[in-house]
Every structure is written in structure tokens, then in C-alpha cells.
Design a protein around this nucleic acid. Structure first.
Lengths: 210, 210
DNA sequence: CATTTTATGTACCGTATCGCATAAAAATAG
DNA sequence: CTATTTTTATGCGATACGGTACATAAAATG
């Protein structure tokens, strides 16, 4: 059933590969500073082909953000299942995120931070669709952390506390994304991420950093 | 010595007021999505006047960012001196920042987050001048926190610990800026800010949130 | 009053933008 | 082979962009 034998002229490009290339362009330049010509050049397609396949520039951007959110989610979830125990799992997730933000992932090899935080944040004040998308992305990050915490604490923590802690961790990730794009070395970011997890759920609840 | 009696035709506008208006335009739309026509309309000036007074669009933006950083710094420093003790002072600073991010300040009445974090972050991957500026802004935030902590702990904490804690608090602010622009209610952000300070320097080092 | 200096306002230049209209190319259906 | 369907390619058109010449206007100096 692979050969569906569709009628017309077959496509010369793979939709997913192309979307990944478009993603990189937006990731680097942001939405407003990216032109369709840049996308055309990066993908090897012409504007009409792009338009036919993915719609307008805005459509492309939203598709790419959505795709990124899915890949990110899968990536972090996988990292979170590579360890056991609340803090180790959280640390694994944070470490994977920092790696991604610093360009150490299959998605991107430059320290551009999180695609959504780095580029979508700027646009939300002008376009409600973008604002809705950013809200969704943030909520999804919150939810991911909340699910993990809930799973590991098994009802020993009130729901409000779980969500609050999740928001806090998600907040840390946003900050790490910003600092990654600002050029902070990965080692510093990893240390900050680790500190955040330690401070959120202090094991011995002992020595203060300050 | 106030009347310097300069030669030519006097200006019809106040430079500082105009810069504040330009700031608002960039704050809302970001750098790339802002046109000189928008700035001209917001300030009531024509492009030639703008160009003569502030230089190119990029010059204007950098001037505005610099100005914002100064005002922000003064604003937070003032807040930090309204209380005494490490944690109360830190909380006062964080609360003032959140207010500003949420549009509760004289600078801006919309929840646009931090001007630098919200708009400059996007641009840094394309322009080294912008990247340098963002680094400076971040470092200045770090330094502000470090100074405060150093002052309050008076040598009881190693310098590395001070700087690390400062980076952590600065990181929290970046995250709060992102979430403010994403539409998170101020009450949530204030609670998250307070949690961050509590967790950084736990007084009784007691109950964990999760 | 004439000159000099600075600021303003109109109008313009070359370029780049997005989106589309139109036509060529490729593959299947009958 | 002819007709049909779908994708690719060229290029147009209207608009918007950043930046600037040039002429005008206003104030201070001599």
C-alpha cells in the first residue's frame, strides 16, 4: 500500500524534511525577519510550491511551532524515562532541554534556545493566534512536568502543589532558553538547571546557596 | 546656565519623551516587525527628524534598549532598598519586576514582559551587536542581584556562590518575563517569584513544595 | 536686516516584500 | 494517444520598506 499511485505529478520533496528546514530558518531569524525567499532558498522550493503545500508564511510558522512542540515533548519525555525517582527524572529532563537549547540535538546544532520562547514570544503582542499558540506551548510544558511529578509522588502532594512546582520548573526552562540564546555556556546552564531541581525539592533540605 | 541659546531652529520635541514613545513601539512589536512609519506616527515626527536625532532604526533600537536597561535598573534598585534583610529585599525586587512585566509601571501599561528579553532575544542570532547588547543586559541583571546578595551576606558566602545565586534569580526573571508576555496572570507570577526566593535561601529549610 | 545654523516637511529612490496568475512539466486514466 | 490532474517554474503587481535630497521654516548671531 506504499505505492498509492496518486494521479498528478509526483512531489519532488519530502514534506517532513522540508518542514524541518523551514523550522531552522524561523529558529534562527524569528518570524518577522524571515522572508519567503529565505525559506525558498533553504528548502530548494519556489514560493508557489511552498504556498501550495503549507499555506502562508504565518501558516508555515504555526505548523513549524506545532511540530517543534511535538518533537520537544517527545524528546523530553524520553529523557524523563531514562531515569527513576523524582529528582533524577527531573534532572534528566532539564539536562536534555539544555542540550537542545545549546544546539546539542538532532533538531538544531546552534545555541538558539527554544524555538517558541526565542521567536514566538516577540510576536504575541500583535497577533492573537500567536498568543494562543504560545499559551498552548507553555501550558504543555507545565503539563509535562506536572504529569511527571504526579506520577512520581503518587498522590502524596496536593494537586495545587504539583501544578505550582511544574510551573516553576517550566519557568526555569524559559529562563534557560533565554540565556542559551544569549550565549551562556552550556556548563553554566546545566549547573543552574540542577540547582533549580535541587532547590525545588531539597533532599536533606540543608545548606543554602546564599 | 539653563538657557544655552543654541543657534539654529529649536526642536519641537523632547528627546527623552520621544525615546520613551519609540520604546513602547519596539516593546510591543519587536525590532523586525516595527517600521519607521510606525515610529513616526507614534512620535509625531517625520523620518528625517528621527534619523537626524537618533540615527538608523538599529541605532534607535539600541538606544532604547540601553535606556530601558537603565530605567529598569534604577527601578529595581529602588525597590530593593525599600526593605531590609536578604529575602525581603529580593522579594521586593522580584515583585517590582513582575509588576513592570505585567504593565503595572510608569514605563508601560501592557503585559509585554521585559523589553530586552521579549524582543531582543529574537534578533541576537543574526546581528552580533544585538547579541552583545543582550549579553550586557543579562550580565547587568546578574550583577544587580549579586551586589544585593553580597551586601546582605557580608562575606559569609563565597563569591562563586553569590554569583551563582544571582544568575539563578536573574534566570527566574527571564522566565517571568516570558510568562508575563504569554498572558499569565500577575498573581501567579508573583507567587512563582516568591517561591523562587524562598527556595533559593530557605529560612527554616523545611517543607518541600513537591 | 542679512547671515548662519539647525529643524521640519515633502517627495523620492532602489530594493525587498508577500501573494498570485499563468504556463510548463510529469504522471495517471481512459 | 488524448484528457485530466497535480506539481513545478517563471514572473508579475501592488505594496511597504529603510534611508535620503532638497526645499522650506525658524531661531540666534553679527
Amino acid at each position: 500500500m506504499k505505492t498509492e499511485n496518486k494521479r498528478g505529478r509526483p512531489r519532488k520533496f519530502d514534506e517532513d524534511v522540508t518542514l524541518d528546514r523551514i523550522m531552522l530558518v524561523f529558529w534562527q531569524h524569528g518570524y518577522a525577519a524571515t522572508s519567503l525567499d529565505q525559506i525558498a532558498e533553504a528548502t530548494g522550493l519556489n514560493r508557489p510550491s511552498l504556498y501550495a503545500a503549507f499555506g502562508s508564511k504565518k501558516d508555515m510558522y504555526l505548523k513549524v511551532i506545532s511540530r517543534f512542540a511535538n518533537q520537544m515533548h517527545a524528546h523530553l519525555q524520553e529523557a524523563g524515562q531514562s531515569a527513576s525517582g523524582l529528582q533524577p527524572r527531573l534532572k534528566a529532563v532539564m539536562a536534555a532541554a539544555v542540550d537542545l537549547y545549546c544546539g546539542k540535538s538532532s533538531l538544531c546544532n546552534a545555541a538558539y534556545g527554544c524555538l517558541a520562547i526565542s521567536t514566538l514570544t516577540t510576536e504575541v503582542a500583535d497577533d492573537p493566534d500567536f498568543k494562543t499558540m504560545l499559551e498552548k506551548v507553555v501550558q504543555r510544558m507545565d503539563q509535562g512536568f506536572a504529569d511527571l511529578i504526579r506520577e512520581e509522588t503518587r498522590g502524596t502532594v496536593p494537586e495545587a502543589g504539583v501544578r505550582f512546582a511544574a510551573q516553576h520548573l517550566s519557568l526555569i526552562l524559559h529562563g534557560l532558553s533565554v540565556r542559551a540564546r544569549a550565549g551562556e555556556p552550556p556548563s553554566t546552564l546545566q549547573a543552574l538547571a540542577e540547582l533549580a531541581v535541587d532547590r525545588l525539592a531539597p533532599k536533606p533540605a540543608s545548606e543554602s546557596v546564599v
